[in-house]
Design a protein around this nucleic acid. Structure first.
Lengths: 240, 240
DNA sequence: ACAAAAGTGTTATTAGTACACCCATGC
DNA sequence: GCATGGGTGTACTAATAACACTTTTGT
């Protein structure tokens, strides 16, 4: 201990004794199954609160950033990598965890609907998709984290094209509209929605049709990243 | 050490050895002097990097939240309390600090222009106001923190009435316009600006005038909190 | 033939933008 | 009386909101 003590002399940390303060990351994992927004949660396997529903999270290791920690546990819990990842908020109430001090960085992430059913529900976390409407109680302040992340997702989706992160590479306009409707929790007029989306010039129509939703079939589109970047760099603000 | 070891057995933290990871808070302190946006920074007094320009920050103590830590150092550095405070972002690059692991929660805060000159520049931090245009180099990743916070301030000010946090209780429309102009870094048309602001019905005109800016004098207004809350709860989105 | 979802246009309303002159006052 | 910043109105344009029918095709 005396070796460590010298570390704290004569520098910025001189008045901070070494203490047990952990920092964790908790992931709010949104997924879209084509009809509803879902959340990937798990039954906590460790004490305390074993068996209670919980977000998927981890203590941040000494050698990783918040984003790397989130990427690690997302990969462990879903098998996926390269997920869209966004900081939501830091939760640091002194007594938010049980018995020791642990602050948590909440991150939210989006799972594409074509990967939705590929997310293994039998991994080390024993994770499960749950509808956002009838979410069970979650441990600690995790319910609050979900609600806060939901608000951020709602406002972000209006001005940034992150909705596309929840859809497969190729998608139809009705699918896109359904997604916006469940995120924003309001019905949208299909004519105005289509007009607005197409007018932005960031969707590329393909010749293929998707017939899973109707007899007639709906044209597939692709999100055009270059057109989008041109749009934002010319000062435009994507909006629904 | 063996006493501590038992703490880590049989719980969520079992695979996390006790390690030296600090969490700090750094404050991006914006102030408005009536003409320009300024930032309150200090010359670092401790090693390493003594004498370099730095944001005002501190290690978070075991008994305080991020917000409480920020409030504490803001009070130490400005003498003010009850400041508008907002989380900006967590910075957690493994090597962002020198020699040890320290992640930092960046918070931004707004100082009202009538308090601007009251902020003591001879406190334990030896803080100074600096124009945002010709900001000197700052230690570590603090420059990045400022730029990120500036982006957040810009987008926030368009849809939330936080601009009023930078003005005194009573202010004139030209003062408000000037503030928006320096935050958004663009000139605004005074007729359209006035029309838009007054149409929201959240400004209350007083009979007094402020003659500091002109011979004629400009009417003073007050921000009407109740009217604002009525507006947002009726689904409206404040915007400039 | 019919059910079910995809696709299409027009009009009305509202919000935003551009723009130029008179007013009140202190000096 | 003039310089300085404060205050006002109107016309044009763009965006948004409301609204109903036809098309395609599998069954």
């Amino acid at each position: 201990m005396s070796k460590k003590k010298s570390f704290f002399d004569n520098n910025l940390y001189a008045d901070s004794q070494p203490h047990l303060m952990f920092t964790a990351v908790d992931c709010i994992i949104f997924g879209f199954d084509g009809d509803d927004l879902k959340l990937l949660i798990m039954k906590r396997k460790m004490e305390p609160l074993r068996g209670e529903w919980s977000l998927i999270g981890s203590i941040i290791r000494l050698e990783e950033t918040v984003e790397e920690a989130a990427t690690r546990i997302l990969n462990e819990a879903t098998g996926l990598s390269d997920l869209y990842l966004e900081q939501s908020k830091v939760y640091s109430e002194v007594d938010r965890d049980l018995g020791y001090r642990c602050m948590s960085v909440a991150m939210y992430t989006l799972i594409r609907s074509d990967k939705f059913h590929l997310v293994s529900e039998q991994n080390q976390y024993d994770s499960h998709w749950h509808g956002l409407e009838d979410l069970p109680n979650l441990v600690l302040d995790h319910k609050r984290m979900v609600l806060d992340a939901m608000v951020k997702l709602r406002s972000k989706v209006k001005y940034h094209p992150i909705g596309f992160e929840l859809l497969p590479e190729k998608f139809t306009i009705p699918q896109l509209q359904k997604l916006y409707e469940v995120i924003l929790d309001e019905e949208l007029d299909s004519r105005n929605f289509r007009k607005k989306m197409l007018s932005l010039g960031i969707l590329q129509q393909l010749s293929e049709k998707d017939k899973s939703g109707s007899k007639k079939g709906a044209y597939l589109y692709q999100f055009n990243h270059e057109a989008y970047h041109k749009l934002v760099s010319s000062g435009f603000n994507f909006g629904v």
